[in-house]
Amino acid sequence: MKIKRNIALSDSGFVFNPSTGDSFSTNPIGIEIIKLLKEGKNEDEVKKHLIKTYMTDEVTLEKDYYDFVNMLLKLQLAEGDESEAKN
């Protein structure tokens, strides 16, 4: 899964999609996830980083991470990898 290339992200959590004109707001951990994904980190790397940084456990994080990236796909801020896209 990749964040679309032209998505703009501000440090205050404002997310803008120039190709649709839609804007979104996200919380600090949301910013962090989007940033890491934009940098090209894969799912495992992102999750490892979050577990190191936040007081949470793997099960909770797994559930919340999955929910969040699904929202990114749904809101068309991210796209699946080639292989996934073909289904």
Binding site: V15, D22, S23, S25, I29, T53, Y54, T56, L77
Partner: peptide, 15 residues
């Protein structure tokens, strides 16, 4: 020290 955890959320802004 680890930071307080809050579930990631994202929401569309209806300007």
């Amino acid at each position: 020290k680890k930071m307080q955890y809050e579930r990631p959320v994202i929401q569309r802004l209806n300007t």
